[in-house]
Design a protein around this nucleic acid. Sequence first.
DNA 1: GTCCAGGGTGAAA
DNA 2: TTTCACCCTGGA
Length: 301
Amino acid sequence: MKNITEIKNIFNIEETIDLANTLDAGQSFMWQDISKREKIIFEGYFEDIKLHLEQKLNYICVTVFSDNYDGNFSSRLQKYLGKPLNKIQGFEVLLKDKIISPVIKKYPGLRILRQDPWEATIGFITSSCSNLPRIKKHMTQLRNVTGGIFPKPEDILYLGEDDLRKLGFGFRSPYIINAAEIILNENLSFDHLEKVPYEIALNDLLNIHGVGRKIADCILAYSLDKKDSFPVDRHVLSGLIKWYGLPKKTNPVFASNFARKKFGYLSSYAQQYIFHRQRLASRALLWGGKHRSFAIDNDIS
DNA sequence: GTCCAGGGTGAAA
DNA sequence: TTTCACCCTGGA
């Protein structure tokens, strides 16, 4: 049913951002691809306000379905959308990497998001041993339970494990409860994690039951701006083995430490590009194949 | 319809 | 250090 009281506000973000590969390729599970015909549009929420982001050549057209936002909304949204690699000091090092360099040239508009850490934590706990469509479905359902506003830790506890299981979270349900408890008991503060170095933030996150190294690294990289985090999932692991000479049976923690040492503060970008290369390689679409990217090559070429 | 595997983790061998 | 169960569902 169409909501006749729906208010639309439109503004543009005058920057090149590759929406599809930034919002809808594993960093976030909060965006739905609602593209039709030639238009690339993603629907999602920022600060619990419903948005449409439409991919234009050199900018993003933002439609806000609310009147309830302030003058700094746009700049906070820009911060959420992160920075392109070429705005990171010393990024040229990655151009010298034979594996990463061609992917950078293909996807210069790929960014690292700065999501809300609480939402990211729930999202990545949910991602464990699941797949993209299902994770997104769960995240959407969870948001809908609380009327379009993403549930706070207290809402999660109010829901309880049984209701989470009914929503389909399965064995991840108690993990989500535990995350909420740890936040409410003030044993973990995301504001604090943002300020401390990677290692300390990592150890704090590992206290959440159901958060291991991979999920912690995702939270650190994609919501807490820890650019020296390098999440290793099965795809990235096989990429590292295939392209960087790691032994066949390397475990993910060793691989992550190896990559962090190699890429330093460019780790999260390096990881995304290796992930994309592996993702495309596995679909045999990399060179010359059809793919969805409306990124415009500006000053990286 | 049935079968399998999916961006992992924690506990038990 | 290695193996296994854990929930559930999209896609073959």
